[in-house]
Amino acid sequence: MLSINNLQASVGGKQILNGLDLEVEAGQVHAIMGPNGSGKSTLANVLAGREGYEVTGGSVVYRDQDLLELAPEERAREGVFLAFQYPVEIPGVNNAYLLKAALNAQRKHRGEPELDAFEFLALVKDRMKLMGMDESFLNRGVNEGFSGGEKKRNEILQMAVLEPRLAVLDETDSGLDIDALRIVAGGVNSLRSADRAIVLVTHYQRLLDYIEPDFVHVLSGGRIVKTGDKDLALELESRGYDWTREAASA
């Protein structure tokens, strides 16, 4: 589904990704781990097409298309979803407006009929139950005045409504207490399916206690230096990141 080849990228003139390779197939869950500054968030933002993240080399192929050629909204309509590390507050745009506009933009793109207000509400309310969210939140501004946990939950709700093919979750566990973490993880788990791939970007192993990955990759210096299964995450937890760097350079 996703094939990243020798990807190089810079932010503000500073080289962050230095030849990153990654293959992701439908149905898989990949965890990308690494110390601060290793390029985890850069990877997530490059995949979503954020301005200011300049690709200086390599390629990203997504479902036989050059992903890097697409505008951010085209990627979204093709089924790429980024759960933001810091979801932005947009006062005045309410959650329902945004979700409906986003959902219908995708459906239109796929040639499906747009949902009317009634169908839409039914769908959203169903997904909100899953995330343990109160309905009043629909009429609030996007992330406006939300706590950190609410923002992250809202990201997963959007994911649940938009049903992406490829979901990239950028530090979705950061800033969550244990109850919120359970709810968010439960939401993600319920979205695991044979035709959907999930990439978890995380600093800590904690999230992986709740979402079991098929692969764990260690990112360091802008490259993947080690790949393993979920046990690798446990090893990282006990030994830290330094040994992977040594192992890579050895």
């Binding site: 951010p72 909204e73 745009v93 945004l98 986003a102 933009a105």
Partner: peptide, 24 residues
């Protein structure tokens, strides 16, 4: 600009995202 990107990452095209933010 961050809000604009957020909306686009949800599939709303740039022009519509601008209109939406202006409206808000």
């Amino acid at each position: 600009q961050t809000a604009l990107f957020y909306l686009r990452s949800r599939g709303i095209d740039a022009e519509a995202a601008r209109a939406l933010l202006t409206f808000a």
